[in-house]
Design a protein around this nucleic acid. Sequence first.
DNA 1: TGCATTAACGAAAGCGGTTTTGTAATCATC
DNA 2: GATGATTACAAAACCGCTTTCGTTAATGCA
Lengths: 338, 338
Amino acid sequence: MTTIYDIAKRAGVSPTTVSKVLNGYPDVSLKTRGKVQRIMSELGYQPSAAARSLATNRSMTVGVFFQDHVNSGLRHPFLHDVLASFKDVVGGKGYDLLLFSDAERENFPSGFEARAKHRDVDGLLLVGVPRTDPGLVALARSRIPVVSIDLDLIGSRASYLMSDNLGGTRAAMSFLLNNGHRKIAFIGDRLGTKPGHDRMLGYQQSLQELDLPFRSEWMLDGDFTEVSGYEAMKKLLQVSELPTAVFCASDMMAIGAFRALQEVGKKPGQDISVMGFDDIELARYVTPSLTTVRQNKEEMGRLAAFELLELMAREDKPPTVITVDTEIVVRESVCSIS
Amino acid sequence: MTTIYDIAKRAGVSPTTVSKVLNGYPDVSLKTRGKVQRIMSELGYQPSAAARSLATNRSMTVGVFFQDHVNSGLRHPFLHDVLASFKDVVGGKGYDLLLFSDAERENFPSGFEARAKHRDVDGLLLVGVPRTDPGLVALARSRIPVVSIDLDLIGSRASYLMSDNLGGTRAAMSFLLNNGHRKIAFIGDRLGTKPGHDRMLGYQQSLQELDLPFRSEWMLDGDFTEVSGYEAMKKLLQVSELPTAVFCASDMMAIGAFRALQEVGKKPGQDISVMGFDDIELARYVTPSLTTVRQNKEEMGRLAAFELLELMAREDKPPTVITVDTEIVVRESVCSIS
DNA sequence: TGCATTAACGAAAGCGGTTTTGTAATCATC
DNA sequence: GATGATTACAAAACCGCTTTCGTTAATGCA
């Protein structure tokens, strides 16, 4: 490895000076600076990030805890997209991402805070992390800048971001009503996620405000996956009076509901309307294509990145909760009824 | 930050000893070891990865260059899955992943090798990297262990891994023949990727060996995306004699082909059979569901991980090319004809 | 009892940078 | 031309951990 000392010797200056050109300090003459830079590129010099971290206590990396696998329904296709746009923004500022593995090894640091400190990350992004994780409280108290997505973690330097689940759901309910639907069932979330909770709230509020009938058999729940949507719909089909539309808290559950309907010879989008939430890639491709509430994934990633950059930049940046607008995407799975 | 010195002072031993218990050296008495460990956990001590990297020249991270966006057709849904299973395996060995951002900033190291050295990664995974990247040659020559996926990069310590594209394609062709298809068109890859090339090879070889008719108008190409498949199929529909089946080098192109067919009132899977490659999640959900050649994503990730772990462990591990078996998934988009 | 081993621990020199402080030389100012 | 301010550079301590090489004390053996 070629070090700062090698450069210094070749250039006939001190390591200090080399370091200074590396960091753009002003007190280096133009001539010296040029010479040093030339030698650096001649030797293909690369500063060691580890050494720099050690000295500065900054690593230019942001750590990411990304729980996939779990609940592959909501998570999988969706969160990767927000991560991608997040990466683009922070990457533009020179940060690389450290993707923490979720394999817990004995004798290895465990818990968000410990692992973040271990790796000296400058900030943290939490994505797909369950609300129940015991490490969250410690993290909220810590001085580590963190932004979480779809998880209502607020702390001394912890902001969070999620779609306007309440508003999106209410818009969806109005949309259904405008299409003549008054008997609307709901397939929600038994996992206790914050987005799931808000969507349920939106459903209930809408029922009240729009003066729609409430029936407890019309409230089912699942875990965001296709099969849970399938099963919920199965159960729904048993009740004495059927709704004309069902609103699902995730697209995957809506797709599962499709299947349950088709199995009993009913056509989704004609016999019973189905609406989803998320607008995953699949939504356009299923038959009938899925009318749904779109979460703006790219925007979420971008905003999360900006927020985290600010938290990292200013010690006193107050934590925020950020809400991202949703949008109704009209396709074929909701029909108008008289 | 609490350091090894703080622990040492509290325990009444030298920093050396603390370091030794940290690393499991044998020359520490049971009593001392226990005491030190207790104090560590009392103080919530976390060793600094940066300091350790600096001292040992190992970082316990593997770097990942992941080009998404580009060619979102093949890439997107597919490669994330292999990355996930890769992460699980290396994570189990204590490695975290460093996801390099592809935003090139001026004044920042560029090129695979430079960035890898900058971050002191112990190994590298290349995924979705175009064959034409100028940094590849340097990387192949370097001493950095690297495994690439779907990219035929071989070097002093560089192995690569890809599906059995040739075999998979040939199996697909036989499958089509067994279903009575002799007039088979091909939508391939104009990008020059290695998998694309092998699939085309498989097509041509099969034509010869199975004694099937070759027509140059039956060879189209695209870039793995849906729209390119759509356009290729459009073009194909113009030719004087239509094939009875078309084999596409990616599922997304097959889905694009569906659309082109439907636009002219033809039913994919009935009027013209369509077969894809990859078995992305979508394949099961489109109508008709897509008969395709499955790439075993989880297996690819796992094998890539094992290979990289070996390359990192042994200086003299010879580079290998690994081939992962494919499998035909029969669904509805191919029909039997007389 | 004397000697060679072995077990347990510590001193100190790195690893490759950054940063504070200092100093010599140049410059502007009156 | 003496004084103070600037400019350009360097010495050296430090960041937190590893590792080599000693050293001392305890142990084994004859």
